[in-house]
Design a protein around this nucleic acid. Structure first.
Lengths: 111, 111
DNA sequence: TTTGTTCATCGCAAATATACGATGATCTAA
DNA sequence: TTAGATCATCGTATATTTGCGATGAACAAA
């Protein structure tokens, strides 16, 4: 809801991290990612069996993950097979790994 | 008396991951976390100098990070010093590390 | 062609998030 | 006591997200 005229000075990396985190930031999407990452490639139909939500809702979540680049879809009529986007997944892994270890050097005396 | 930490009730690991990711999922909050994690402990006043947004807005973002358990605040009148919550930070690091490496075993033939 | 399957998109309602100014709360110092 | 500094919260407006049913698009098979 950008209402300010000021432009916040984000590094692109901060925006990338935020956008990926935002995509992960919903329990259903975490579940989908886990299903795709650790078990098997899934079709949307199978996901509706595993996740008790409307097909349209799951499709929306898949779209969010697609837009974030975390998954990709392969049309295999009449089904669509979704998979982790391994390339971007590894980039995200590296980004978050760096993000979470960025405080190693410094020790605050706050407690 | 504890005045700064709010408790969160998580019911599953997927919800924990989602809630943390959701907290990280905004560029301003990523920036705040980076400032706190890699540079120094900050006061809200200093953050308003580094981030061109209203003080109330920054305070709101800090509250979101507090609720997620990623930071903690130490009242140091008339200022408040915010720091990374190292304990939860490391837990989050472990969670996301595991999350991102969960697909190692499996190789999908999707491409 | 028609029918059935699968998934995306549309349209809507409700909930949540975002941003701001104004105000309140708390403490220090004069 | 009063004044100033600092940060939280309130109230408001608007934007975005979420979820659903209905519908549309694309394709295979009959």
């Amino acid at each position: 809801m950008q209402r300010t005229l000021l432009t916040v000075d984000y590094s692109s990396e901060e925006e990338i991290i935020a956008s990926i985190a935002k995509a992960i930031g919903h329990p259903v999407r975490v579940k989908i990612l886990r299903l795709l990452a650790s078990q098997t490639c899934c079709f949307t139909g199978e996901l509706t069996e595993l996740i008790p939500m409307a097909q349209s809702t799951i499709s929306q979540h898949l779209k969010a993950l697609l837009n974030a680049g975390l998954i990709k879809g392969e049309i295999n009529p009449p089904k669509v097979r979704y998979c982790i986007d391994r390339e971007n997944w590894q980039k995200a892994q590296a980004l978050f790994g760096k993000f979470f270890t960025a405080d190693r050097e410094y020790n605050c005396d706050c407690g």
